[in-house]
Design a protein around this nucleic acid. Structure first.
Length: 350
DNA sequence: TATCCACCGGAATTTATGGAAG
DNA sequence: CTTCCATAAATTCCGGTGGATA
C-alpha cells in the first residue's frame, strides 16, 4: 500500500508548495536582494502548528540554494539556550564540529567569518527563545538574515525591545487550509507515496475534512489510513480506515514527541500516566518512593523536586501532560493515557 | 482578618562535561 | 597527564501566590 514512506515524514519537502504562492513571493521579496533593490530583510513567519511554516521556509531556501548557492541553516530552538542555538547555526552553515563549551563570542565570530555574501538562519519554534540574547548575537553579523518561525505574532513582537522593533518588517502569516486546499496537498503525496488508486478522491476529501486545516495532521492521517487499509487486507483505503486514521495519527505524533525526551521526563510521565490523576504531592511521593529502583542500573540519578518542576513544565509544552489547578493543589494528568513511554516502572499499588 | 500551607518559578550557586592549554 | 575554562544541568535558596483554616 505504502510505496515510499519518506513522503509522509515531517521533514519531507514537496517539490511544489501548493496554495502558498503569495507567501513564497513575500519571502522572495524580503530575502532576495535583487528583487527590488531594497536589500534583504529579516522575516517573521507566524501561525498555528502544522500549517507549513517550516516547510515554507525550507522550500524557499532549498529552491534558492539550487539557483544561487545561498548559505542557510536550520535551528530548532525549543528549549535551547543561546549558546546551543548559535553553535547549531554555525554547524549548519559550516559543517564543522563545534565543541559544546565554545565561548559564545567565539561562535559569533565564527559565524561572521563563515558568511560569504548572504546567509539565512531559520530559527524554528522560536516562541520562547531568549530572543534578547540571541537576536543581539545575530544582529551585528553582516550578510546574515533571519527567518523566525513562531506561533504567536503578537507575543513575539511585544517581547522585542526597541532596537529590534524595526526588524521583522516582513511578516508572513500562513493560515489554516480549507478542505479543498488540503485535499490538493494530499493528492500529490498519495500519488508519490502510495500504490496507484490506493485512495479515492472521496476518501481523500474526508481525510482533509477531518484534519481541521492542519497539513501535518492530514498527511499523518493519510499515512495512518493507508497502514490500516493494508493491515485489514483492503485493496484501497475504505470508509472504516478513514474513520480510525485520525486517532492513530494523533497517537503517533504524541508518541514520537515523548520518545524524543530524556529519561527524567519519561519517568515523570509514566508516574502520572499510571497514577491517573495525581496531585503534585502524590506525584512527588511516588517519585521518591520508587526513584531508587527506577534509576537502578541507569547512568542517571533521581532529581530534586525543583528540577522535576522544570521537567513537568516541558512535558506540558509538548502537550503530553496537562495541569489542573483547582483549589490549593495541582493535579497532573496524561493528555492521552494510551501513549506509554518505553520507560518501565515497578508495579505501583494504590 | 491573620496565619498556615503547598506549590510555583526566578536567581544564585554548585556540579558535570569535555575540549584546550601547559 | 594535569589544569583550566565555558557551558549546561541540577541544586539550593527564597519571595510570591492563592486557597484553607482559625
Amino acid at each position: 500500500m505504502i510505496t515510499d514512506p519518506r513522503v509522509f515524514d515531517d521533514e519531507h519537502i514537496p517539490r511544489e508548495l501548493v496554495h502558498r504562492h503569495t507567501e513564497l513571493e513575500k519571502l522572495a521579496r524580503a530575502l532576495d536582494p535583487g528583487w527590488d533593490g531594497a536589500g534583504v530583510d529579516d522575516v517573521l513567519i507566524a501561525g498555528p502548528s502544522g500549517v507549513g511554516k517550516t516547510v515554507l521556509a525550507k522550500h524557499y531556501l532549498t529552491r534558492a540554494t539550487n539557483a544561487t548557492s545561498l548559505q542557510w541553516a536550520y535551528v530548532a530552538c525549543l528549549g535551547e539556550t543561546t549558546g546551543t542555538i548559535l553553535r547549531e547555526a554555525l554547524r549548519g552553515l559550516d559543517d564543522t564540529h563545534v565543541p559544546p563549551n565554545t565561548p559564545v563570542d567565539d561562535v559569533r565570530r565564527g559565524l561572521a567569518g563563515v558568511v560569504d555574501d548572504h546567509a539565512v538562519i531559520i530559527l524554528d519554534e522560536a516562541d520562547d527563545l531568549p530572543e534578547k540574547d540571541v537576536l543581539d548575537q545575530f544582529a551585528g553579523i553582516a550578510g546574515l538574515s533571519l527567518i523566525v518561525v513562531c506561533h504567536d505574532r503578537e507575543r513575539w513582537t511585544s517581547r522585542l525591545d526597541d532596537q529590534h522593533q524595526t526588524r521583522f518588517r516582513s511578516v508572513i502569516q500562513p493560515d489554516r487550509y480549507s478542505v479543498d486546499e488540503l485535499t490538493d496537498i494530499l493528492r500529490p503525496r498519495a500519488r508519490q507515496g502510495l500504490e496507484p488508486n490506493a485512495v479515492g478522491i472521496g476518501e481523500l476529501r474526508e481525510i482533509a475534512d477531518g484534519s481541521a486545516g492542519v497539513a501535518r495532521r492530514g498527511i499523518q492521517a493519510l499515512r495512518a489510513a493507508a497502514e490500516l487499509a493494508a493491515e485489514r487486507g483492503h485493496g484501497s483505503i475504505q470508509e472504516e480506515d478513514v474513520e480510525d486514521c485520525f486517532d492513530r495519527a494523533r497517537k503517533r505524533i504524541r508518541a514520537s514527541n515523548l520518545a524524543s525526551l530524556p529519561f527524567h521526563h519519561q519517568v515523570l510521565y509514566e508516574i502520572i500516566r499510571t497514577e491517573g490523576n495525581p496531585s503534585g504531592h502524590e506525584l512527588h511521593r511516588r517519585y521518591d518512593e520508587y526513584a531508587h529502583s527506577i534509576y537502578d542500573g541507569q547512568p542517571l540519578t533521581p532529581i530534586s523536586k525543583r528540577s522535576r518542576r522544570t521537567k513537568l513544565a516541558k512535558l506540558q509544552d509538548y502537550g503530553l501532560v496537562e495541569r489542573d489547578e483547582s483549589g490549593s493543589n495541582v493535579y497532573y494528568s496524561a493528555a492521552d493515557p494510551e501513549i506509554s513511554s518505553a520507560v518501565r516502572l515497578p508495579m505501583i499499588h494504590k
